[in-house]
Simulated assay, not measured.
Amino acid sequence: MKNKKVTLKSVIIILLLIFSLYTIITQQLTMGKIKKDIYKQEKELELVKEKNQKLKDEFELSNTGLYKEKQVRERLGYVKSGETPVIDSKSE
């Protein structure tokens, strides 16, 4: 059996390979976490955009006469002539 000498050069090469593998693995793990965060943030952005659109729609609706009339009727209990008011006993 031949005795192989471990030279300084081979130790340095092995250490560099180990360091390189470690760096690659940690970078891949970090990239995976970042991709998950991006996906989560995109979903959250989508939900916020939907909520924003609903609020815009409600705002536009609130500027109509029908909406204002509905609010006055609900909050103040106004009724048009000829209408019969209905009182919900569960809401009290």
Results as ranks from 00 to 15, higher is better:
residue 1 M to D: 14
residue 3 N to L: 10
residue 4 K to S: 10
residue 5 K to D: 13
residue 5 K to Y: 15
residue 7 T to F: 12
residue 7 T to C: 12
residue 7 T to L: 14
residue 7 T to Q: 10
residue 8 L to F: 11
residue 9 K to S: 10
residue 9 K to H: 11
residue 9 K to C: 06
residue 10 S to G: 09
residue 11 V to Q: 11
residue 11 V to K: 12
residue 11 V to E: 08
residue 12 I to W: 09
residue 13 I to F: 09
residue 14 I to A: 14
residue 14 I to G: 11
residue 15 L to K: 15
residue 16 L to F: 07
residue 16 L to P: 00
residue 16 L to A: 05
residue 19 F to W: 07
residue 19 F to Q: 05
residue 21 L to N: 03
residue 21 L to A: 04
residue 22 Y to H: 02
residue 23 T to M: 01
residue 24 I to S: 01
residue 24 I to L: 01
residue 24 I to W: 01
residue 25 I to W: 10
residue 25 I to Y: 12
residue 26 T to G: 04
residue 26 T to L: 11
residue 27 Q to C: 02
residue 28 Q to F: 00
residue 28 Q to A: 00
residue 29 L to A: 12
residue 29 L to E: 13
residue 30 T to N: 15
residue 30 T to S: 14
residue 32 G to I: 06
residue 32 G to Q: 08
residue 32 G to E: 06
residue 32 G to V: 04
residue 35 K to V: 05
residue 35 K to T: 06
residue 36 K to V: 13
residue 37 D to F: 01
residue 37 D to G: 04
residue 37 D to A: 03
residue 37 D to R: 02
residue 38 I to W: 00
residue 40 K to H: 11
residue 40 K to S: 12
residue 40 K to W: 07
residue 40 K to A: 06
residue 40 K to F: 07
residue 41 Q to D: 02
residue 41 Q to L: 08
residue 41 Q to M: 02
residue 42 E to M: 07
residue 42 E to K: 12
residue 44 E to S: 11
residue 44 E to F: 08
residue 44 E to C: 07
residue 44 E to R: 13
residue 45 L to Q: 01
residue 45 L to Y: 03
residue 46 E to R: 03
residue 49 K to E: 05
residue 51 K to T: 12
residue 52 N to T: 09
residue 53 Q to K: 11
residue 53 Q to I: 10
residue 54 K to Y: 10
residue 55 L to V: 14
residue 56 K to T: 04
residue 56 K to L: 08
residue 56 K to S: 11
residue 57 D to Q: 10
residue 59 F to D: 14
residue 60 E to C: 01
residue 60 E to M: 04
residue 61 L to D: 13
residue 61 L to I: 12
residue 61 L to F: 08
residue 61 L to W: 12
residue 63 N to W: 02
residue 63 N to L: 00
residue 64 T to I: 01
residue 64 T to V: 00
residue 64 T to Y: 00
residue 65 G to D: 09
residue 65 G to E: 13
residue 65 G to M: 08
residue 67 Y to S: 03
residue 67 Y to Q: 01
residue 67 Y to M: 07
residue 68 K to Y: 01
residue 68 K to I: 05
residue 69 E to S: 00
residue 70 K to H: 08
residue 72 V to A: 13
residue 73 R to E: 02
residue 73 R to Y: 01
residue 73 R to W: 02
residue 76 L to E: 15
residue 76 L to N: 14
residue 76 L to V: 13
residue 76 L to M: 14
residue 77 G to T: 03
residue 77 G to I: 01
residue 77 G to K: 06
residue 78 Y to F: 07
residue 79 V to W: 14
residue 79 V to G: 12
residue 80 K to M: 09
residue 82 G to V: 01
residue 82 G to D: 00
residue 82 G to F: 00
residue 84 T to L: 05
residue 84 T to P: 04
residue 85 P to D: 05
residue 85 P to K: 10
residue 86 V to C: 06
residue 86 V to Q: 09
residue 86 V to F: 03
residue 87 I to M: 08
residue 87 I to D: 04
residue 87 I to E: 04
residue 88 D to L: 08
residue 88 D to H: 06
residue 88 D to W: 02
residue 89 S to A: 13
residue 89 S to V: 15
residue 90 K to R: 15
residue 90 K to Y: 15
residue 92 E to G: 06
